[in-house]
């Protein structure tokens, strides 16, 4: 544990509802892997020592234990079947195939581009303003339709995702240009964002604080700098933030002037 020198190891702080399940599995798998490797390694080193060439010794031609040699295969197979049935299928389904009920969750649209994350919140009306590809411009990064009444109170942020703690957030994601990947290591989840396709990622944060979003799919020269933050707030703080955003939004012009509400990437520690 030496932060200063950068030689930390293990898993980063877990901050989502399913992170503990994944960490438990990660621990189990690595314990089994280390056990197999060490047990195997001890036998290996023993063989190298015990059966080294010595004068006058002749190797034994006959083999024994041919059927016993299938025991490791069978044990590994049994372990893997158990792993798939007990954890693989149900855990995968609960994280990737099922979505928490929309009514009890915050839904946010995420539109990635080289090299930024654009978030669209529906605002108090709970409706997302229409996006239209022909409206995309430098000022209107996601192509929000200003004539759509639902878009009037939408909140647009760049690289900053504010969410309430202990409540699921569902991201409906796509990309404008190339493939990106939304990763928050503390949430133990990630998902590709593919142009022409909607993908989903949900998480329920369990810790308040700031967590870094990184792009995990090579997306061009700015790939490294395609970062953002998830700011997990208490329910009350999140409500305040949302109110303030809407006030700013309805006070200004109806096109999404995202730059004015950009909290600034340099606030990162």
């Amino acid at each position: 544990m030496n932060d200063e020198w950068g030689y930390e190891w293990g898993l980063p702080v877990a901050a989502s509802s399913y992170a503990s399940d994944i960490d438990w599995l990660m621990g189990l798998l690595h314990a089994v892997m280390i056990f197999i490797f060490v047990a195997w390694g001890i036998f290996f080193v023993y063989c190298l020592f015990r059966y080294r060439a010595r004068d006058g010794q002749r190797a034994s031609y006959h083999q024994s234990g041919e059927s016993a040699s299938f025991i490791p295969d069978a044990l590994v197979l049994a372990f893997e079947v158990w792993l798939i049935l007990a954890f693989g299928i149900p855990l995968w389904a609960s994280i990737k195939q099922e979505t928490p009920p929309a009514k009890e969750s915050l839904t946010v649209h995420l539109i990635a581009q080289q090299f930024a994350w654009n978030f669209q919140y529906p605002g108090p009306d709970g409706k997302f303003g229409r996006r239209e590809v022909s409206l995309v411009s430098a000022e209107n990064a996601i192509g929000l339709d200003p004539d759509d009444p639902a878009s009037k109170d939408d909140i647009i942020t760049i690289n900053n995702l504010n969410v309430p703690v202990d409540k699921p957030t569902i991201l409906r994601m796509t990309s404008k240009d190339v493939i990106h990947n939304f990763q928050v290591a503390n949430f133990r989840n990630k998902q590709d964002l593919v142009p022409g396709l909607e993908t989903m990622l949900w998480f329920e944060p369990t810790l308040e604080g700031k967590f870094e979003i990184g792009c995990a799919q090579l997306c061009g020269l700015g790939h490294t700098k395609m970062v953002g933050n998830v700011l997990v707030q208490s329910e009350a703080d999140f409500a305040d933030w949302q109110k303030q955003q809407v006030a700013e939004r309805t006070g200004t012009s109806s096109t999404a002037d995202a730059g004015s509400i950009l909290p600034g990437a340099d606030s990162r520690s």
């Binding site: 599995l25 990660m26 798998l29 892997m33 798939i84 855990l91 994280i95 290591a185 989840n189 995990a216």
Partner: peptide
Amino acid sequence: TGLPLGFAPTDLHLHD
């Protein structure tokens, strides 16, 4: 080390 990568739930964290 291919095991936690080929196993989808742990690949969520380790992928890429």
